[in-house]
């Protein structure tokens, strides 16, 4: 049994898709299912997988929930299984990130009540995307090729301790000119998990631990990260 941070429960097409995406981002995953055939199928495709009875808390603990596991995905096709697994996992580890899929808004609420950190409704999102394709085809095309394609990345960059940026207002940053990136906003992790947009009108004062959210080419983001780590005032804030 591997000691991977991320577990996927459910080896159906959805589980395989998520596993593929995560592995593509160099995040090792381990897949579990109560269905032997499914496990055999994903093993044959080259994923790491094992059979696990998710109704047994001891088995879950052995799999690492409450120990080293940080994220689990509940991707069973059956709603009830996902709710049950979410409840069990939440009871074992209050800090665990639990990500579920839901089929309908009602089941989404149930999953949140059971303790899920994030519920993804694939149909809702697909429906909205189809609508966007009709309403604003140009923008969708542009985003498909850039942000969701290979050209541009979205990144969260943490401001390190004692950075020269601390104490500066958000509006004083002119990252767009110094780096070829667009600064979308900042997340003040101490206050809340939501994004403060740089256009919101609230001039947030930056401090260490805040996350800058930027979109840009990978090279530029790496350069920005590097400069932040080395705390190069001349580069970040200019003369």
């Amino acid at each position: 049994m591997g000691r991977s941070d991320t577990l996927i429960f459910g080896c159906g097409p959805m589980g395989q898709e998520v596993a593929e995406q995560l592995i593509g981002r160099k995040l090792p995953v381990y897949m579990y299912s109560s269905d032997l055939d499914r496990v055999a199928e994903v093993l044959a495709k080259g994923f790491d997988a094992a059979v696990l009875d998710y109704t047994d808390d001891d088995k879950l603990r052995q799999a690492g929930i409450g120990e080293w596991v940080k994220v689990i995905f509940c991707l069973f096709p059956e709603e009830a299984k996902n709710v049950f697994l979410t409840l069990s996992a939440r009871a074992l580890d209050p800090d665990l990130k639990i990500i579920c899929v839901s089929e309908s808004p009602q089941s989404g609420q149930k999953l949140f009540a059971a303790g899920a950190s994030k519920v993804i409704d694939p149909y809702e999102i697909s429906g909205r995307k189809v609508h966007e394709l009709i309403a604003r085809p140009m923008i969708v095309d542009m985003l498909e090729h850039t942000v969701f394609g290979k050209h541009l990345d979205i990144a969260e960059i943490e401001i390190p301790l004692d950075s020269c940026l601390s104490g500066n207002p958000l509006s004083a940053l002119d990252l767009g000119r110094r780096y070829n990136v667009v600064l979308m906003g900042v997340v003040d992790v101490e206050m809340s998990d939501s994004l403060i947009f740089s256009t919101s009108g609230v001039d947030h004062k930056l401090d260490a631990g805040d996350m800058l959210v930027v979109i840009g080419p990978t090279v530029e983001i790496t350069r920005l990260k590097g400069d932040l780590e080395e705390d190069r005032t001349d580069q970040l804030l200019g003369g």
């Binding site: 991320t6 959805m14 995406q21 909205r128 969260e156 906003g185 959210v213």
Partner: peptide
């Protein structure tokens, strides 16, 4: 749909807030 879930899930593990906010923005 499954691919979108995969994409969102993967990004969520890496950088939850940013991706969610931006995805929400992109989809109106």
């Amino acid at each position: 749909p499954y691919e979108i879930v995969g994409l969102i899930a993967a990004e969520y593990v890496g950088q939850p807030v940013a991706f969610e906010a931006i995805y929400g923005m992109l989809t109106g």
